[in-house]
Design a binder for these strands. Structure first.
Lengths: 160, 160
DNA sequence: ACTGTCCTACGACAGAAGTAGTAGATTCAA
DNA sequence: TTGAATCTACTACTTCTGTCGTAGGACAGT
């Protein structure tokens, strides 16, 4: 039955190539195997069946699901959000930096990855988010704290 | 002879666990296999030989090298900087976001990973960097290139 | 010189990831 | 109703990762 596991969005662990495919799927919203394959960068565009295999594995991991059929082809849709996935990857990254976003940010900045504008915009996003939060008073601890993600370094949860 | 490949720092591709070990090595500056093993988080602390294997593989990838011996044990030192590594990982991340740091930043912010303070500090770092650059007149970001390992191939300096 | 302890250098192996071929089912346009 | 084109559902590697065990070398006491 190739039953897709119902996984907590937060524990879906993707490999590089799976991420690559998810990237395409996130962009397209939903797509067939062929569409996905065609969106992959020319250089590293594997055979059709290779992509198919990846998609199947993603399905088993609960990262995507079939939503409908077009012709004889299945159309897949993401089950995990890009956001949740980045969060996950970022957390991993943090692991190698004593869990400090600061340090990581510094490295990124120094590495020339981020421009002042990027940061400014991020700030705006953040501020907008804050006020939204206050205005609506929205509670709900949403998905976030699933469980102290087994951080390695001494405790010290990031405070905001 | 287990000759370590002289790899361009930028093309060293590390796996999760290798990163984990590198994390420990970056923190210690230089260390023996045992020291590295002991710095790994209790929970996931593999057997001594497992760590040893990882270190050997890192050596072959040119990510670390033996610098000396203490007793009968080798002491290793990182050959790739933490910075360069983060850069690499970040680049990969960007791949899933249409190459836009903005989008990624937004996701991070929304995910509650970054606080306003984190951003402010990053900005300062950036500004400090800018003026340093202008004042000091651009100087190679070398930092840990202790010895020029015959590095000469066609440089493919990524600039963004 | 003998012995226990700690390393190193290899060799192994299971499971994950990447890559793809094939047989048979579907679909679509004649 | 046929046949080509396209998919799907498997099966099958090969490589890469994570994990160790073991044999034999080095060294510190005794």
């Amino acid at each position: 039955m190739t039953e897709a596991r119902v996984a907590k969005e937060s524990d879906v662990k993707l490999t590089r190539f799976e991420l690559e495919v998810m990237g395409a799927l996130w962009e397209l919203g939903s797509a067939s195997v062929r569409e996905l394959q065609e969106r992959l960068p020319e250089g590293k565009r594997p055979a059709y069946t290779t992509v198919q295999t990846i998609v199947y594995r993603l399905e088993e991991k609960g990262a995507v699901r079939r939503v409908k059929k077009v012709g004889n082809a299945h159309v897949f849709e993401p089950m995990v959000t890009r956001r949740a996935t980045v969060r996950r990857l970022f957390d991993e990254l943090l692991g190698f930096f004593g869990g400090s976003p600061r340090t990581l940010m510094a490295q990124l900045v120094e590495g020339g990855h981020l421009t002042l504008e990027d940061l400014r915009e991020a700030e705006e996003t953040l501020e907008r988010l804050e006020s939204d939060k206050n205005a609506t008073d929205e509670r709900a601890a949403v998905e976030s704290q699933s469980k102290a993600t087994g951080r390695k370094g001494g405790g010290k949860g990031r405070r905001r």
